[in-house]
Design a binder for these strands. Structure first.
Lengths: 195, 195
DNA sequence: CTTCTGCCTGACCGATCGGTCAGGGTCTGA
DNA sequence: TCAGACCCTGACCGATCGGTCAGGCAGAAG
């Protein structure tokens, strides 16, 4: 019989995810996590340098996908940017529901931590894309409402299957974004140079 | 010359609102508030029974308006409920931007506090009304996205004037709610009795 | 056997939290 | 002048936080 290697590292990670979703990052103590795993607090800090490192490792996959989405948005404008942003973010939000639930509401403060310094910029670009790169207040507001609302919905509707949730959110997003006049699909003229 | 009565109570309230919006309820200590006012922590606790009482007094006006909205929704169905809910909530959210920013993200935990026990039910009813009392997942999801997104937007766009923000949000809400089949406006027949 | 290494722990640290308390200063009205 | 109400404070409390540290234990290697 294969000796069951105790994957303490993974267990801590899973327990932390569970606790964070219920009581938030700041509302969860290392003691709470240790209790859930069934080990001592010192063990948690043996496997992770500190509390922040634990969070960072928990968020790494989601952040990777977010960066990929950010790359895909480069160069897109108008309705195309809106569609890619909507589709990409809805997909991301649904897939990483739990991670989003972890950050729920603590975004502003958590983003201050060095491990997440760049996330703010990425999410700003995402919001800008969802607004079709328009600077009209209506478009910017709609984009923010959607991003925040979709995050919240994913954290809340834990019981709805991925596919159904994704479809509903995408339908809503397409209905809700403020339509922008797509730049002419003509090949760029001399006036279209980036300034 | 009229002796300037020091309105310490009010000053504490204002300082708390300012700090809470920046660092959140849990992220703000009584010491922080006292420092901002320029008094001792004990003074804060002389004017308010405890930290929770401070929050409750800060939220009282907004909660009052929320209850009024809740009353106005009684008996409304379909599109009428959606419109009243959208209009009422957008107005409330814009007027009480700062209060909403205070609760930002800490809603789930704060609602557990006895002073806010009933808020959860009211906001559930509000969400239900915004969904046109439909039980279709799409309608329920859209309602949640809107409520959460609008709250976030109000907290975020502090620089946009009330009127502009209200208009933009209401336009968005009307565009984004899932349309429901309004019950026939005919006078009730024998089949329309509430069951 | 000894030694070494990886995993884990209890005890402990300083800092900070919300909250209490006895007492001091000031104003007012008798 | 004195009593009492009101406002405010420093000192202090127990609890909890994230984090450190010396050492115990088990198994593999020599």
């Amino acid at each position: 019989m294969v000796r069951a290697v105790p994957d303490t590292h993974g267990e801590i990670l899973a327990a932390a995810a569970r606790r964070f979703t219920v009581t938030g990052y700041r509302g969860t103590s290392l003691q709470d996590i240790a209790r859930e795993v069934g080990c001592s607090k010192a063990t948690v800090l043996y496997h992770f340098a500190n509390k922040e490192a634990l969070l960072a490792e928990l968020m790494a996959p989601a952040i990777g996908v977010l960066r990929d989405l950010d790359d895909k948005l480069i160069g897109l404008t108008g309705a195309a940017a809106q569609e890619v942003a909507a589709q990409g973010f809805v997909d991301l939000a649904v897939r990483f529901r739990q991670e989003i639930a972890v950050l729920r509401g603590e975004f502003p403060e958590l983003l201050c931590q060095p491990a997440f310094a760049h996330i703010q910029q990425i999410s700003d670009r995402l919001r800008d894309a969802l607004a079709g790169h328009s600077d009209r207040p209506g478009a910017r507001i709609a984009a923010l409402v959607l991003l925040a609302g979709i995050s919240e919905a994913c954290a809340e509707f834990a019981d709805i299957p991925d596919d159904a949730l994704r479809l509903a959110l995408l339908t809503l997003a397409r209905r809700a974004v403020e339509p922008v006049e797509t730049p002419l699909p003509h090949p760029p003229t001399t006036e279209d140079k980036d300034s």
